[in-house]
Design a protein around this nucleic acid. Structure first.
Lengths: 392, 392
DNA sequence: CTTAGCTCGGAAAGCGCTTACCGAAGCGGT
DNA sequence: ACCGCTTCGGTAAGCGCTTTCCGAGCTAAG
């Protein structure tokens, strides 16, 4: 593009009819010229040195206001070696599905809430979130992630989209925080206390409700969160001597559709359902609820169902869903804060490896779907205070 | 929660041994050195010129792979004058609420789905989304938006966060597309066909169900979408000679909590509820449903309730929510495509101001909450094909 | 054997900003 | 009235990349 292009010629404010952002954004040189100072002074004023004296300062600020100037992000980033941007990789359900907008995309809710948590904290530090989705089975996810990394100061990975080796490689170049992974020698992982939450839930179902047969509807394969939750449940089940069903039939892939399909298949297969179905997350519990309702199976009367995450929807379902609450936004906020400290520390003296796996507290939220009566719905906190109070 | 908590401090791995991204990302100079060529050649290879011959090309590619090189985004952006980033401004409920994470934040779902639509299309063009939230009553929203603009190639504004004058000013510097606004001389607006959708819904309620008293639960004040929807309903109501309640009592602010509060207030005030409550969006309809249920008012038996947007949750409610579907993701996709073409056209010959207000089709989705029986629930498409078939 | 016509690839000029570095004033002290 | 000290603010050197401009080397034609 040439600047001799007549189309770029300066346009008088009212002229050229409907403007149309052809005016080009003003540069620091424009400001300097209007203010009658050098670009260095402009920069100094804008970056809060105390160097320029009041009068100069005023002239510059007036020019800035008049022109509507703001420094170019790329130029600034190049100069100060800080982009004030963190890259966020979210996982796209399927590698560029031809049915571009699959309806089950409703499951995006969870990652998006996490992002919101990040964003709010990022604000405070002047950072923004650069979002990119990557398909799980995408050809060269590695390259696409790296590319995002070079557009930002650090990366937050929502899901396992990279092999450990790729992750390792990547984290040598940029600070990386994972959300549903496992910490590596150079990355930090942030997650809810799956273990604790699931144990509390399991104990409630086993001891308070006395259920004796269970099933665990897993998330997608290899998900560390799902594995941990499943293991915790299995451990409690074993300790109490109750039956736990699990396996490939019991997989909802974290999605509503997945949960529904799994139940449909099981029912079609003539399997006798357990007394309680513990789902890996709320989303798949929704699907289970639907499939059960479609077959006239009462929840929690015939089968109890529970979720995990306690998304906002959980309380809008009928029956209201018993779940394990994790402060989703805190997950994001913590991930960002962690990354932020890594970014600042980058290149500085390295300290001992500590706190590489951060677990945030979770809390059992009893609602109706586990068999608790509507009375305990009002205040989950209250209910929790009752300890093991019977409610079935 | 305090972020000064030492537990959050990141500590780099023990020695320099384990990596720990202290290695600094390789630059094009590193690649050139390793490959034994000049940086110009590296750049040429990477940017697909046909200039370098095969042997040189191989050497470079080998070096790139070995070092794990990817060009720095800021440097590249500065050079080619294209960041391949579009800024997205979403509206934060309230200007930095002290209760940082208000629970009603569930309403974030809608903008996030739109973003997802954008992101998918942006991928194809190599763009990413830079997200920033701005409070509606934020001190200098204008500056914060401008700053985001300078970090990107164009802006998509979700909500009215800027005054028309600010918008006008901004759009002289960068291409801008709004989602819930009105087109200006230099910005394009993308929105669902509120008018058509609402008219279809109104006619269904009036003619198919024969309801005679209505209320419109508005969104937040000044929202163009809400205004248009309200006007369309009013127009149909007037034409049919049925009663329509509206006004300050009937405002849900697009939120579940808002909808619930409005109903609570009305009931407390002893107001006689209309036969049908038409909500400005699904989110507030959820609140209405809850409030009604809390008072033992049957839906749709006593009062029919409808939403707008047809979010995924709509079909998980009891009763399933009748709504007006707009392809939320298409909204985002279209907004991006529009902006993209503006970005490319930037600086080139300007064309006639045309298509500045883009309306996407909407479609009535009949479920249970309007009074239609569960039989028409199975396939909304089928139901739609039946035309005005009676279902009440 | 010379020279016009190629193709390759290096040197260097920016892109818009920050920030040493340094010369020019302004100031009080002797 | 002169000298060192402190402030101010301009000049210029990058930040890492793309791309124009050219010279070098090679091929093929005269």
């Amino acid at each position: 593009m040439s600047f001799d292009d007549p189309a770029l010629e300066y346009q008088a404010p009212g002229a050229a009819s409907a403007g149309g952002h052809g005016d080009q954004a003003p540069t620091i040189y424009d400001v300097a010229r209007v203010a009658g100072v050098s670009i260095a002074s402009v920069s100094r004023v804008l970056n809060g040195q105390q160097n320029p004296r009041q009068e100069t300062r005023d002239r510059v600020l007036r020019a800035v206001a008049e022109l509507g100037f703001a420094p170019d992000g790329a130029a600034r980033a190049l100069s100060v070696r800080l982009k004030e941007v963190v890259g966020v990789i979210v996982r796209r359900p399927r590698w560029h599905d031809s049915s571009m907008f699959a309806d089950e995309d409703e499951n995006l809710q969870f990652p998006d809430m996490i992002n919101r948590g990040m964003e709010i904290v990022a604000q405070r530090h002047g950072f923004d979130l650069l979002i990119r989705s990557v398909g799980l089975d995408e050809p060269d996810a590695g390259r696409r992630v790296l590319a995002l990394a070079r557009k930002s100061d650090g990366l937050i990975l929502h899901d396992r989209v990279l092999s450990p080796a790729e992750l390792e490689r990547l984290s040598r170049q940029v600070p990386v925080v994972t959300l549903a992974g496992e910490p590596t020698s150079s990355t930090v992982n942030v997650h809810g206390d799956n273990e604790g939450g699931m144990r509390a839930l399991a104990r409630h179902l086993i001891h308070d409700h006395g259920y004796a047969t269970f099933a665990f509807l897993a998330g997608h394969e290899g998900s560390p969160d799902s594995l941990t939750r499943g293991r915790a449940l299995a451990s409690e089940a074993a300790a109490a001597g109750v039956t736990l069903l699990a396996g490939d039939d019991w997989r909802g892939g974290y999605q509503a559709a997945g949960g529904a399909q799994a139940i449909e298949r099981l029912i079609a297969g003539g399997v006798r359902l357990p007394r309680a179905i513990v789902c890996a997350n709320d989303q798949s519990a929704i699907g289970v609820l639907h499939a059960l309702a479609a077959h006239g199976i009462s929840v929690p009367g015939d089968v109890a169902v529970t979720g995990f995450d306690d998304m906002p929807v959980a309380r809008h379902l009928r029956p209201q869903l018993t779940s394990v609450r994790q402060s989703i936004q805190d997950l994001g906020a913590t991930a960002f804060e962690t990354l932020y400290s890594m970014i600042n520390r980058s290149g500085q003296a390295k300290e001992s490896p500590r706190g590489r796996d951060i677990a945030l507290p979770t809390r059992l939220v009893r609602r109706e779907s586990c068999g608790c009566g509507p009375q305990s719905v009002k205040s989950a906190a209250q209910a929790a205070d009752l300890g093991g109070a019977a409610c079935a």
